[in-house]
């Protein structure tokens, strides 16, 4: 079982999972009944290229502790989207640095429909990072 003990409002992790690869991948982890920390929330996306820089920063401001973009990688059904998004993330990282946010809070990775192990690895690593770092915003 996971590390939900010690969970706080600040350490929720968001997974932006593509509908054709990573979202079914998360379901496959469920089918295998492999547990992971309950602070992980999966949002289904068509292509993560949709999100502007501001979306990520807003999430951290709202108290999200970490974001993993789980894309299809090379298998992305939208040609050019993966590249465009990787470029955007470079800018998000810059902005995160400016705001004093540890850039390890945001990760881009490719997850396939049956990559259970890779999924669990990503989730556990991000949890470690989030637990290691202080919450992204101070309590009001």
């Amino acid at each position: 079982m996971g590390s939900q003990t010690g969970a706080t409002a600040q350490d929720k992790i968001l997974l932006l999972a593509t509908e054709s690869c990573a979202y079914p991948g998360a379901d496959s982890v469920g089918q295998a009944h492999a547990s992971y920390p309950a602070n992980v929330y999966v949002l289904k996306v068509k292509a993560p290229v949709l999100f502007p820089e501001k979306f990520y920063l807003d999430c951290f401001r709202k108290g999200i502790g970490g974001i993993i973009i789980m894309s299809c990688g090379e298998e992305c059904p939208y040609e050019g989207a993966y590249k465009a998004m990787a470029k955007r993330l470079d800018r998000v990282y810059e902005l995160m640095k400016e705001e004093g946010l540890d850039i390890r809070r945001l990760r881009l990775t490719a997850i396939c429909t049956v990559c259970n192990r890779a999924f669990l690895n990503e989730v556990n690593q991000m949890n470690q990072i989030v637990h290691e770092l202080s919450p992204p915003v101070q309590a009001p």
Partner: peptide, 10 residues
């Protein structure tokens, strides 16, 4: 295509 590449940059 509905990918949203335009959404992010507007």
């Amino acid at each position: 295509l509905g990918c949203g590449a335009c959404v992010a940059v507007c």
